[in-house]
Structures are given as structure tokens and as C-alpha cells.
Design a protein around this nucleic acid. Sequence first.
DNA 1: GCGACAG
DNA 2: ATCTTGTCGC
Length: 233
Amino acid sequence: MTNHPGHDIWPASGWPTTPDELIRVQETLAHAAWTPFRPLGRVRVGACYTCFAQAEPGRGRPDDVGWAAAALGDEIAVASAVSPEGYEAGLLALREGPLLEAAVRALTELPDVLLVDATGRDHPRRAGLALQLGAVLDLPTVGLTDRPLLARGDDPEDVRGAASPLSIDGERVGYLLRTKQGARPICVHAAWRTMPEAALEVVLTATGQMRTPEPLRAARTAARVARARDLRG
DNA sequence: GCGACAG
DNA sequence: ATCTTGTCGC
């Protein structure tokens, strides 16, 4: 938890710092060999989330302060820093990667599988931030978003648990999942070491009565609370 | 040229 | 991310 944030976690983070660099990493990760994660037994599901100080529509600003939180069971960890980049679709890792990694690494124990507020295989180079973060942390990950980046899918029926495939040119990259009746479906993305079906299973086990899976709700709340606290003194 | 475009 | 709109429940 950095109280007076700087760019400090970026240079030493090992994450790419330029679009060209990131794109190369994404292309490499998209073709990397992997063994599929099978959710067996009691799987510990964690989540991470980032929010920023500037709340303007459209692209976020460079040099904005960000707060990331990671949640696993009752434990919460938070990290904060100035993020050098604004938001650009396809390059979210430049803005949030090191922040999310820092929050997850601040947990006492790592989860068996991590939910990330970003896409995975649904990406121009098939390597969204959820996939990349999993590779960096060596953890299976699942991406969760409100809407797809490139993928398309039909609306699942309005029954809790109903799902319909999200695809890019016939390639299945995730599912639209109705986690709550009467609520918009969430996008569940295959990411690092997770097939679309495994991703779906993980999300269903982590979801209670609310639309958003519990670990992600916890991380989201924690990040926003940290932001509110730090923006006072 | 215009809209779309994870957070 | 944020905003708008609509609906339901307190």
C-alpha cells in the first residue's frame, strides 16, 4: 500500500511500458504452450480490480492515480501508484498490469484461480490483461467484463446459470453468463490456462445472489474504499 | 468521415 | 471507466 504514490512500481515491474513492447509480449503469450486448468474439489477463487482517481468518460488520463485491490476469502490487499498511461482498448496492461500484480502479490496466500476485471482471449492478439496477468503470476486466470472487446454472442435466456458462447470468427473465447435473473449477463473470458468451460465453472462457484461474483465484489469495494481514504489524508 | 473500442 | 434510462423494492 503506497500512500504517496509514484511511478516506482512500473520500472522494476518487468511489465512492458510501450505499446510496441506490449504488443510483442501479447503475441508471444497468445502462442505460449499451456496445460488446461481443471477446477477440482474446493477451489480457492480470488479476484482483483483497479479503480482510478480521475473519473472521466472515454479514455482515462495518463499519470492518473490508481488503486488495485485483491481479495481471497476474508483477506484483502491493496496497492496504489501513479499509472503512466491512459486507457486504450487492447493496451489495458500498460495502465493496470503492475498495479494488479502488486495487489495480488501482497496477499498472504495466492488463490488457486484468479478473477480479473478484463478480457482474456477476447482481444485483438488473443492476449488480454487477464491472460497476461495469469502468465506473470503463474496462476490460472478468468477474465470478467461487462461487455466483450471483439467477441460476439447471443443473449442467454433469463435464467440464472444460462450461458451462450462468445466467439471471434467461430473461435470460442468465453461465455455470456446470466449470473442473476433479470440482470444483464456478464462476460466470462477464457484467459491464462483456462478453457471457456472451466472459466464458466469457476465463475459460477464464486457467484452468490448478486450479479458479480463475490471475490470481485470484495476487491471492487476495497479498492474504492482505499481511494476514498487516500483522497482525504 | 463515422461509430466502435476491456477498464 | 461513467452516464442514462427504466424498474423494483424499501
